[in-house]
Design a binder for these strands. Structure first.
Lengths: 342, 342
DNA sequence: CTACATTATGACACCGGTGTCAAAGTACAT
DNA sequence: ATGTACTTTGACACCGGTGTCATAATGTAG
């Protein structure tokens, strides 16, 4: 009993002595087929190592039990590593998909380049998850295309006014507030923010706003001089912090827009001979693994990536099923560690 | 100019006033079609937001420009996180695929459960990458299935005698040797190994063998009492180390089969009041990000995940093209940090 | 014994592309 | 005008399944 190349349902039909239609039904456990026939078919199928051809099946049924994720390269040109936060997200989305019985198609996109995969994948996947800090300016027109096609998709990240897409994100504003409240409770009076507080990084901007608003309620101003621009890398955080120090900006608390930035900042502060947390409190954002291992361990605002992955997947599936859904805002959580306490 | 649902090549044909065959040719820039016709077709296609249906196209051509990765859950039942080393591998494989113009289909598999995706994906992907510590015992029969189907696949991990599959792996034996040599150079006399040194974890076993062989060449025995079993988690490393200490095993050097184990070990050693590196040298394996951030920072044997990802992908592609290829052994690298030096 | 469900199966169109082949159209040489 | 070559196009089978419909086989009520 052999076939040239991979076995097809016709091969099974031949060896089982039934029609191809019956094979198809039997393998999907249709109630229409006789118990004995079913057993026979399964037996032959197993013997031939048969598996349905998903291409054929998807083509016919017009659905794929697959979700696609478009992962946008973060701004740094660094070839080696993906931002650990997104890597975690990728991991949790993978898990969430598996749990729902869906496969995941990963496409890696350079932000600048043409979205090769965008709706190109629209037939291979039932829906798309967009993940990455984006220069969201640029997204706009492309998202329009997706919407026009009525492709099902959800975005991770800050909600931007006027955009019609469905998002799942951390409550970045609330996270910024948490950070500010904690620092104020610690009696800190002079704060700095490190990160890109512009509309190019909606997440960072929102964190900044929450942070700033609480500080101002407590009469702690956050002026131009107290903000240092940085992208989400350790290096960038290091240099931003050094430039603050070089400019003689006085501060006893530092809020970094991400943990990577915070880690770079800690390095710069240590080098400058400053004691953490005594001289300077430091808070990051994300709660990546390294935050727990660094010395002193980093107080941070946790984004629950496990939950985020689950919500992205479940919202997308709801959308595909045609259910009404709304944006999801996940609660951030303050994780207190050594950079803000003894 | 509109279509109900997604546009097909027939829609284009209709609006462009040519046959569907010509549309298909024009869109793939076949030299057989007239320049003017081609332009016309492309124009209509763009206007209709048309994209080829990959299912149909793959079905016909029997190839997909897609690779699949089967990621096996690591032994721990921990729901939350994927082992950071594998997450890195996933990241680098994603990047490598993108570079080669391939998409990546990620399937998450629980080792115990039926490989749902196994060769089921064989039609959706041109080849498969198997990634995970496996209970390789169990693999055996399944790999046979893959081989029988002449599915193209490569495995990450230790080569096991008698297995016919193609592997890419780190030179675990050499890595174990590096660790031993370094400890000996540091004047250490009493070593312990933490990890599963059985054929259930071929990688760990190989690391152990390299380690042990060098030690024995220098007349440093490594007996039963100096080995503590552990799976690759921080927790497991912590408890294994505590049990060594509880058993009054004397040692001045500790080689952990993975960084996660090493991190757990460091915690246990610190708690016991031991000084690192003075009282005990510690070496891990993998060089995950945390190794650099922990205090004292962890000396480790680096596995080059970037290169590993590239090799897995390029070997698989070679295999698909029918080229002769052999197993690949990647050189490990000793990264010296504070746990073995001042 | 006829009438009418009920169950199990096969024949066949279809999903949306790709590849092959025949044929129409044009060019140029004889 | 005839023959040969080349370019461009359309018709059609095909990839491997799924869904619909017709039909055969069996049961069973009247």
């Amino acid at each position: 009993m052999k076939t040239k190349g991979k076995a097809t349902s016709f091969d099974i039909a031949h060896f089982a002595g039934v029609s191809q239609s019956t094979v198809s039904r039997a393998l999907r456990n249709s109630p229409l087929v006789n118990e004995e026939t079913r057993r026979k078919v399964w037996e032959v199928a197993k013997k031939l190592n048969y598996k349905v051809d998903k291409n054929a099946s998807n083509l016919r049924t017009q659905q794929s039990a697959t979700l696609a994720i478009l992962l946008f390269e973060d701004p740094t040109g660094d070839e080696s590593q993906i931002n650990p936060f997104f890597l975690n997200m990728l991991g949790s989305i993978t898990r969430a998909c598996a749990k729902e019985g869906y496969d995941l198609l990963v496409s890696f996109q350079s932000i600048s380049q043409d979205w090769r995969a965008e709706y190109e994948d629209s037939h291979r996947a039932d829906g798309i998850i967009l993940l990455g800090y984006g220069d969201y300016m640029d997204y706009q027109s492309r998202l329009q295309n997706l919407l026009a096609q009525d492709t099902k998709f959800v975005c991770w990240g800050a909600k931007v006014e006027g955009r019609q897409d469905l998002t799942v994100s951390c409550d970045n504003y609330g996270g910024g507030q948490l950070a500010a409240k904690h620092l104020i409770a610690n009696g800190r009076k002079h704060c700095v923010f490190i990160g890109d507080a512009s509309e190019h990084s909606p997440e960072f901007l929102t964190r900044f706003k929450g942070f700033k608003d609480i500080l101002e309620q407590h009469n702690i101003p956050l002026g131009e001089r107290n903000i240092a621009n940085a992208i989400s890398t350790e290096d960038s955080g290091y240099h931003a912090t050094r430039s603050l120090l070089a400019n003689n900006v006085k501060f006893d608390a530092l809020f970094a827009a991400s943990d990577l930035i915070a880690i770079g900042a800690i390095k710069a502060l240590k080098e400058a001979g400053l004691k953490i947390p005594e001289d300077v409190n430091v808070i990051g954002f994300d709660n990546i693994a390294a935050a727990n291992y660094i010395t002193p361990s980093l107080t941070t605002i946790q984004q629950n990536t496990t939950l985020a992955g689950q919500m992205l997947v479940s919202n997308l599936l709801s959308l595909i099923r045609g259910e009404e859904i709304t944006d999801t805002l996940l609660p951030p959580k303050l994780i207190i560690r050594e950079t803000t306490s003894k």
